[in-house]
């Protein structure tokens, strides 16, 4: 089997300051990888480099494309990379506002990716939109409402529906539960766990919240000062942390 994503020797600097360095890993189909660390640890920089939002200074991000097999996404042409972003890849932003069109109805938001890849039957698009709203627990009668009329949790669920409707093979998530109330977070996590299992999703989730990775991630990478200090199976890393920093991270959570 070929890894879905192979990351080799990735590095990004901001002037003299290190964003991230020496990052490498494989992600296998159906696997969910968590990246944890404090703010400033380089985890968001890493995610931006992986998802093509930021150009790294060094390294390779090799994706197993459907047509041509493994290809380095960094050396792809922009049209190819943008095509990937609207078909095989999906990106869930921390702030739903960044990932939604706030002036377009919920149905239009979910339907956009379908239309971007050629769907031209209004009835089918709408049916799929309603179906997806249901899967993220948004009532069908809200399909024509604009996202600004939704609560924060609903907006985030709508963003997830909009991203998953085309069945992406790899989902990037940046603090998907950040900024939501604790009770709303729990419901969202539950929903995400269901979708991940049901669809066999491959995902890379960046978070500072260990509860999120405990619930969703098969594997875990711990970052500090732009470098990976420890990685392994999620349970292993969280239950038996080896690196001093990971121990600190885990113990601070346990105290809460």
């Amino acid at each position: 089997m070929t890894p879905l994503l192979q990351v080799r020797d990735l590095a990004k600097f901001y002037g003299a300051r290190r964003g991230c360095e020496d990052v490498g890993f494989d992600l296998w189909p159906g696997e969910v990888m968590g990246i944890v660390g404090e703010s400033g640890s380089g985890k968001s920089t890493l995610l931006s480099c992986l998802a093509g939002h930021l150009l790294p200074d060094r390294g390779e991000v090799i994706f197993d494309t459907q047509l041509h097999g493994p290809r380095d996404t960094l050396s792809m042409s922009e049209p190819e990379r943008r095509m990937l972003m609207r078909t095989d890849w999906a990106f869930v932003h921390q702030h739903a506002r960044d990932g939604l069109r706030m002036g377009v109805s919920a149905g239009g938001n979910v339907g956009e990716r379908l239309m971007a890849v050629g769907a031209r039957h209004y009835g089918d698009i709408r049916e799929q939109a309603v179906d997806w709203l249901g899967r993220v627990e948004i009532a069908a009668d809200r399909v024509d409402d604009k996202p600004w009329a939704f609560s924060g949790g609903m907006q985030q669920r709508l963003q997830i529906a909009r991203n998953l409707v085309t069945g992406p093979r790899l989902v990037f998530m940046d603090e998907p539960t950040g900024g939501l109330d604790v009770s709303v977070q729990a419901r969202l996590l539950d929903l995400m766990r269901g979708l991940v299992r049901e669809m066999g999703l491959s995902a890379i989730i960046v978070t500072h919240d260990l509860a999120v990775v405990r619930l969703l991630a098969d594997r875990l990478m711990v970052m500090k000062d732009g470098r990976v200090v420890e990685q392994g199976l999620t349970d292993q890393v969280l239950d038996d942390p080896q690196h001093g920093y990971t121990q600190l991270l885990v113990s601070s959570v346990l105290q809460v």
């Binding site: 377009v104 339907g111 709408r126």
Partner: peptide, 19 residues
Amino acid sequence: HSLEEYGLMHVKLYEDISQ
């Protein structure tokens, strides 16, 4: 235009029909 990203154009038509 250069990347043929025209999904947004149909979103506009979709919104028209839904409204």
